[in-house]
Amino acid sequence: MKKVIVFLLLATLGVYLAITFFNIGFGDPHFVNGVKDFYLKETVENLHVSNTVTSIVVNFRGFDTLGEVTVLFLAVTALGSILYKKRHEVGARSVLFSSSSVVTAGSKLLFPAVILLGVYVFIHGHLSPGGGFQGGVIIATGFLLMLLAYENYSVSHTWLSIVESLAGITFAGVGLLGFMNGGTFLQNFLPTGVLNNLFSGGVIPIIYIAVGFKVAAELTGVIYTVLHEKGVK
């Protein structure tokens, strides 16, 4: 009975969505003068940033990104407080298996390369696809690899929170500096440089590097917390 109701609901929703979106049309210009034209023009002419998505996320909607980073921080804090444990109860890992020497040696070899790729992705966030969030996730996967390969690999929570706080302070501080120099929060106050150069885009690379460090620290913290969760047996 329940499944019939669910199928009816899904069918209704599916038909409704399909009709709506098929009427919109795929690949057609939906707006004659959309906000996208303004963004594309401003990005290349005033901000000198190659990646328009980056300039939208960090500059035009920078305040939104600050809120997004805050939401991420809140989610990590909530996860830590829901899974709270007293210090002496933290010990054995929930995922317990010994890895072969091939896996451990290979992980050690891959780890610096993964970190380097993550750093590359967030430093070049204004030039190529990628950015702070993506680079941070890549760095966190590097730590996940090490945590899975070595049973007693540990990450210092103190260092994670220091990195996270410093990155957050950098983001908010750059925003406040813009407030003092230019007039609005997160406004660009540095020279924008030449399009497609590494040192271009004013404050955008600085903010994205801060976001990269913050996301990497937060995700590593999540992985570490969940991995050291002991099940009830």
């Binding site: 939208i56 939401v71 991420l72 809140l74 990590v76 996301v215």
Partner: peptide, 17 residues
């Protein structure tokens, strides 16, 4: 259009949280 891509970038992060 870069705007939906930027919005989805936000949505993915919120989805992770």
């Amino acid at each position: 259009d870069p705007v939906p891509q930027a919005l989805v970038l936000t949505a993915i992060v919120i989805g992770f949280g």
